Computed example of a mutant assay.
Amino acid sequence: MPKAAAPKALAEPASYEAALQELEQLIGQIESGQLPLEQMLTGYQRAAQLLGYCRSQLDAVQEQVKVLDEGMLAPWSQE
């Protein structure tokens, strides 16, 4: 019995902004309720991938941001 082919990886976005724009478009399509079930599932999977990409980009930037705290550079925190 042949194995089912694994779904091919979707292309990584060119930038954070491009990922965010594509994510917003996908959310609009999914929320419209006009997509067939299979396309909705594919859109949901792509949206999850884009969300993960955006989070990783934000985490990387947050690691680079430093604030001056009592004369010493310290990692930035929201607190």
Results as ranks from 00 to 15, higher is better:
Met1Lys: 12
Met1Ile: 11
Pro2Val: 15
Pro2Ala: 14
Pro2Gly: 09
Lys3Glu: 15
Ala4Ser: 11
Ala5Gly: 07
Ala5Glu: 14
Ala6Phe: 05
Ala6His: 07
Ala6Glu: 14
Pro7Tyr: 00
Lys8Tyr: 09
Ala11Gln: 11
Glu12Arg: 08
Pro13Leu: 00
Pro13Asp: 00
Ser15Asn: 02
Tyr16Ser: 08
Tyr16Glu: 13
Glu17Ile: 11
Ala18Tyr: 03
Ala18Ser: 10
Ala18Thr: 13
Ala18Trp: 01
Ala18Cys: 06
Ala19Lys: 02
Leu20Val: 09
Gln21Cys: 12
Glu22Lys: 11
Leu23Ser: 12
Leu23Cys: 07
Glu24Ile: 05
Glu24Cys: 03
Gln25Trp: 06
Gln25Lys: 13
Gly28Met: 00
Gln29Ser: 06
Gln29Val: 10
Ser32Val: 03
Gln34Ile: 03
Gln34Ser: 12
Leu35His: 00
Leu35Ile: 03
Leu35Ala: 03
Pro36Cys: 00
Leu37Met: 04
Glu38Asn: 05
Met40Gly: 08
Leu41Glu: 15
Leu41Trp: 02
Thr42Asn: 09
Thr42Leu: 12
Thr42Glu: 14
Gly43Phe: 02
Gly43Tyr: 03
Gly43Trp: 02
Gly43Met: 04
Gln45Ala: 11
Gln45Asn: 07
Ala47Cys: 04
Ala48Glu: 11
Leu50Asn: 01
Leu50Val: 02
Gly52Arg: 04
Gly52Ile: 05
Cys54Leu: 13
Arg55Leu: 13
Arg55Val: 14
Gln57Trp: 09
Leu58Ala: 10
Leu58Gly: 02
Val61Cys: 08
Val61Ser: 09
Val61Met: 10
Gln62Gly: 06
Glu63Gln: 10
Gln64Ser: 10
Val65Met: 10
Lys66Phe: 05
Val67Met: 07
Glu70Asp: 13
Glu70Ala: 12
Gly71Lys: 03
Gly71His: 01
Gly71Tyr: 01
Met72Val: 11
Leu73Pro: 04
Leu73Trp: 15
Leu73Ala: 09
Ala74Lys: 11
Pro75Glu: 01
Pro75Leu: 03
Trp76Phe: 15
Ser77Phe: 06
Gln78Phe: 13
